[in-house]
Amino acid sequence: MSLESVKAHFKQWNKEQDVMEFETSSATVEQAAETIGVEPARIAKTLSFRGKEEQAILVVAAGDAKIDNKKFRKSFGLKARMLSPDEVLEQTGHAVGGVCPFGLKNDLNVYLDESMKRFDTLFPACGSTNSAIELTKEELFKYSFATDWVDVCKGWQDENLDEKVALQQESH
């Protein structure tokens, strides 16, 4: 059902035929990257958080990014609390492993994390554990009806790596 709702969502732009379905699982970032043949960072993962008044907040981030609790609280005024798999299904209509910001069961706020801006195209899931679509960041913003770009992730920026290396060199 979920894959069909995503295809129906993409019909309004004549993009439903662009949804890719695989023989193998694309449920995790690593599996999706291996199945598609791209680096894990280019997998656009959709994370579901508790919002205000029982309404979920969806954050789509690069596959190598992790939520930064301080940045999340600063952006949303809430502690970053992920939904349980049952709550994710109830809020989005998609089961964990196929969660995406398309064809949603409820009208949810979708935010795109800055971690994805370094790529020309990304691969979000399409409602099942063996599907994806290749989209530019502009298309991802448009087709997900995103509210805004946010900076709520860590662990993906090269400059942090450069600082760590410099600190390590100083300490030796």
Rank of each mutant, 00 (worst) to 15 (best):
M1N: 12
S2A: 05
A8G: 13
K11L: 14
W13A: 09
K15M: 11
E16P: 04
Q17H: 14
D18P: 02
D18Q: 09
D18K: 06
S25M: 06
S26F: 02
S26H: 02
A27K: 04
A27Y: 02
A27Q: 06
T28M: 05
E30K: 06
Q31L: 11
A33C: 07
T35W: 00
T35H: 00
T35G: 00
I36G: 02
I36K: 03
G37A: 06
A44E: 01
T46K: 05
L47A: 05
S48W: 01
F49P: 01
G51W: 01
G51P: 03
E53L: 13
Q55D: 13
Q55C: 10
A56F: 02
I57V: 08
L58Y: 01
V59T: 05
V59Q: 01
V59F: 03
G63K: 01
D64A: 15
I67F: 07
I67H: 04
N69G: 13
N69H: 12
R73C: 11
R73N: 11
K74N: 10
S75T: 10
S75I: 06
G77V: 09
L78K: 09
K79I: 12
K79A: 14
M82I: 14
S84H: 09
E87S: 07
E87F: 04
E87P: 03
V88K: 00
E90P: 03
E90M: 09
G93A: 07
H94S: 08
G97F: 01
P101E: 05
F102M: 04
G103W: 00
G103N: 04
G103F: 01
G103T: 02
N106F: 08
N106S: 13
N106A: 11
N109L: 14
Y111P: 01
L112F: 08
L112A: 06
D113L: 08
E114S: 12
S115D: 11
D120L: 14
D120K: 13
D120Q: 14
P124V: 02
T129V: 11
T129R: 02
L135C: 03
K137Q: 14
E138R: 09
E138Y: 08
E139Q: 10
F141N: 08
Y143G: 04
S144E: 06
S144P: 07
S144L: 07
A146N: 11
T147V: 15
T147E: 15
D151I: 08
V152D: 00
C153V: 08
C153S: 12
K154T: 12
E159N: 12
D162I: 15
E163T: 11
E163L: 13
V165A: 14
Q169A: 14
E170W: 11
S171M: 13
S171I: 10
H172Q: 15
H172D: 15
